[in-house]
Each structure stands twice: as structure tokens, then as C-alpha cells.
């Protein structure tokens, strides 16, 4: 009896982790790209919420959720570009601008999103990976959204590009030392602007996942701060796209513990599991703050690590 309950929890957690982690994955990859270029964007929460609203609205009007996903990315791109443009101006504090963008993005999303709370829009379909097992719980857990795989491919591609392409090198150089980037004739502002806009695009796609797949509807309480936590996730992953995937899965699993325990009748005490990734990130920061080895992984121009 204990065993089967345990397995139920594990399977539910696996499915939950895959579902919950996808938006984390996209915001983390977006933030990772932006931070690699030496700038921090705390406003991805705004991109996420606006992306969720735009995806739902466009999917409702066009009937094609994938157009919704693209539109969500586009809205994120615009917010990211706004952040990137304002931060190009001298004397502007990128952290505060991030919070302003967050408040602007959620405001706009709530304003235009009001009429879309009621109607139901076509949602993204899942790929059924587990039907062959004949186990209904496992089959349900293994219904994976294509965006999950898109995220993994993207992480691998980003990781490869950072290491092996000219563009990747330029982004890393801008993030590590603006002075040497300038000496090479690279426009630091322009690189950071593009990296922030592209990062914003990814966060918007993450929002589309929220409204079009899981939880799969649009309302004002849709996001539970995934965008804001992107910064912590990237620190947790030590600015490495592949590790961002693992970190997102871990954050997702921690978020999925609550509902999985509820499925076997335990409904209390899981809030500490939800907070576990944050506590863990804090400890990692404390442990690595003064270590030289860890300092090598940090983009040198980042305002939060100076």
C-alpha cells in the first residue's frame, strides 16, 4: 500500500515536473541570454504575463494556438526591446527598469485580457509518449507538450552557439568585458539590446505555455512569479543553458510536490518544498560568493555580481 502510494506520488511528480518546468525553462533561457551579454532583466514576469494573454487572445481569434505562441513571443520581444532601449541610456538602473517593465507588462495584460477570461481558446496539443505502457497514470504523466522539446533543443543550440560561433563569442565577450568588446569594434549597447529583446521573446513563449497548455486558461492569477524567479534560476544554473534545463526541472518538480502529495491525500506542509529551490539558490549564492572558481562562470559585467 505504501509502495503504490509512493509510486503514485513519483509518477505525478514526474508529469508535474515536466509540465511545470516548461515556462521556467523558457524564462531561464531568455534570462540566461540577456545576462550573458552583461545585463540583467528583472522584468520577465511582465513578458510572461503579457505573453500568456496575447497567446490566448490570438489563439481564440485565429483558432491556431501556434500563431498564438508566435504572437506571445512577439509581445515579449517588444517588451524586451523596450527594456533594452531604456537601459542603453546612461545612468539608468537596469534592475529598477526591470521592475517597471514587470508592472507595465502585467498592467497591459490585465487591461486587454479582461474580455478573454470567459471564452475558451484552442489549446496546444500534447504528444502522447506513454500510451504504450498501458498504465493510465504513467500515460497521463508522459503527455508532453512539444514546447518542452523546443526548449531542450534551444538550450543545446544556445550552449553550442555560445561555445562555437562568432555571435556566441561576441555575446560572451560583451558580458565579460565591455572594454574589450569595444576594442574589438563591437557595439556593446547594440549587442545587449538584441540579447534583451531575444530574451524577452523567449519569456513571452513561456507565457504562451501557461495560458495555452498548463494550467491552460487565461486569468489574472495565472503566473505565480515564474518570471521573477528566472533570475534566481539562472544563478542556480551558473549561466549555463544546459544546466538551466536541469534547474527548471528541479524548480518544476519542487512546485509539483504539493499537488502530487494531494493526490494521495496529504495536503499540508508542502509549502517548504515549494520554497526549497529558493533556499537552495540562496545557499549556492552564499557558498559561491567568494570562490574564485565560481567567479569564472559569472559574466563579469553583470551588475548583480559586482
Amino acid at each position: 500500500m505504501m509502495d503504490s502510494a509512493f509510486i503514485t506520488v513519483l509518477i505525478a511528480m514526474l508529469g508535474g515536473a515536466i509540465r511545470v518546468s516548461t515556462p521556467f525553462m523558457f524564462v531561464a533561457l531568455g534570462e540566461c541570454l540577456t545576462e550573458k551579454s552583461g545585463r540583467i532583466n528583472l522584468g520577465l514576469e511582465g513578458n510572461l504575463v503579457l505573453g500568456a494573454m496575447v497567446a490566448y487572445a490570438i489563439s481564440f481569434h485565429t483558432g491556431n494556438p501556434w500563431i498564438g505562441v508566435l504572437a506571445a513571443g512577439g509581445s515579449g520581444l517588444i517588451l524586451g526591446a523596450l527594456h533594452g532601449y531604456i537601459c542603453k541610456l546612461p545612468k539608468v538602473n537596469d534592475i529598477a527598469v526591470g521592475i517597471a517593465i514587470m508592472s507595465f507588462g502585467t498592467g497591459v495584460a490585465f487591461f486587454f485580457g479582461k474580455p478573454y477570461i470567459q471564452p475558451s481558446a484552442p489549446r496546444l496539443d500534447a504528444i502522447h509518449l506513454g500510451d504504450w505502457t498501458g498504465n493510465s497514470a504513467l500515460a497521463q504523466a508522459l503527455q508532453v507538450n512539444p514546447l518542452f522539446f523546443v526548449g531542450i533543443i534551444l538550450a543545446v543550440a544556445m550552449s553550442w552557439a555560445f561555445a562555437n560561433t562568432r555571435w556566441g563569442l561576441i555575446v560572451r565577450m560583451t558580458g565579460d568585458s565591455a572594454a574589450s568588446a569595444r576594442a574589438m569594434g563591437v557595439s556593446v549597447d547594440w549587442v545587449r539590446f538584441l540579447a534583451t529583446a531575444a530574451g524577452g521573446f523567449l519569456a513571452g513563449v513561456g507565457g504562451a505555455f501557461l495560458s495555452l497548455y498548463y494550467p491552460g486558461s487565461w486569468n489574472q492569477g495565472l503566473s505565480s512569479g515564474q518570471g521573477l524567479m528566472a533570475v534566481a534560476l539562472v544563478i542556480f544554473a551558473r549561466w549555463d543553458p544546459i544546466r538551466c534545463i536541469w534547474a527548471a526541472l528541479l524548480f518544476g518538480a519542487a512546485g509539483a510536490i504539493g499537488p502530487s502529495l494531494q493526490s494521495v491525500g496529504i495536503s499540508q506542509g508542502y509549502y517548504f518544498f515549494n520554497a526549497a529551490p529558493y533556499i537552495l539558490t540562496l545557499f549556492i549564492m552564499i557558498a559561491s560568493a567568494r570562490s574564485k572558481g565560481a567567479a569564472r562562470e559569472v559574466p563579469g559585467e553583470l551588475s548583480i555580481t559586482k
Binding site: 523596450l82 531604456i86 541610456l89 546612461p90 545612468k91 539608468v92 538602473n93 529598477a96 527598469v97 521592475i99 517597471a100 517593465i101 508592472s103 507595465f104 507588462g105 502585467t106 498592467g107 497591459v108 490585465f110 487591461f111 485580457g113 479582461k114
Partner: peptide, 20 residues
């Protein structure tokens, strides 16, 4: 009711840009 949120958001963004 989100109208005031939009106004607040615009104020914040413009305000921080004006620091320059």
C-alpha cells in the same frame, strides 16, 4: 480596473528612463 495599472506602469517606465 487594470486601467490604473497601465497608467502606473507607463509612469514608472518613463520615470526611470528620465533618470538619464
Amino acid at each position: 480596473d487594470a486601467t490604473v495599472l497601465v497608467l502606473q506602469g507607463i509612469i514608472f517606465v518613463v520615470l526611470l528612463a528620465s533618470e538619464t
